[in-house]
Amino acid sequence: MDAIIRTATRVLFPVILLFGIYISVNGHITPGGGFPAGVILGTAFLLLAIGADETSIDARISKKNVMYLKGSFAIFLLLIVIEGYIIRNNILKTQDFFEIWSGGFTFFLNIIGGFMVLLGILIIVYSFIMTMYPPREDDWK
């Protein structure tokens, strides 16, 4: 990979991440919310997967990352379940509009939603990268 692309990836990755978190957290005030924020966060990680060192891809598929991937399935589904319970009950409301704490549960649900879309994109990108490697012993058969 070019030196320009490598450096640009290293610089841009935290910026895009921060931007995605901003859109997700301020979802109930400004346009945005859970789903666009998840797409932006996914773009950040996709940039990391494509633009980084070719030699460091091997280092990235270590045992810790495989465990993180399996954990991400769990967290994903757990968040879906939590969202199911929250949505089924009445929300809590506060009084000031256009403030951070005004939306009630929509505040937390935006963050959860963004995280869920990010995990979905990560799982798909990881599946495509890992087709280059044979199945590992501790992986799901």
Binding site: I29, G33, I87, I91, T94, Q95, F97, S102, T106, N110
Partner: peptide, 20 residues
Amino acid sequence: TGSANIVNSIVWDFRGYDTL
């Protein structure tokens, strides 16, 4: 709902079951 973004309040509050 208390959120200024009406799209968000529809997606996560009024019709949150569909988002699930």
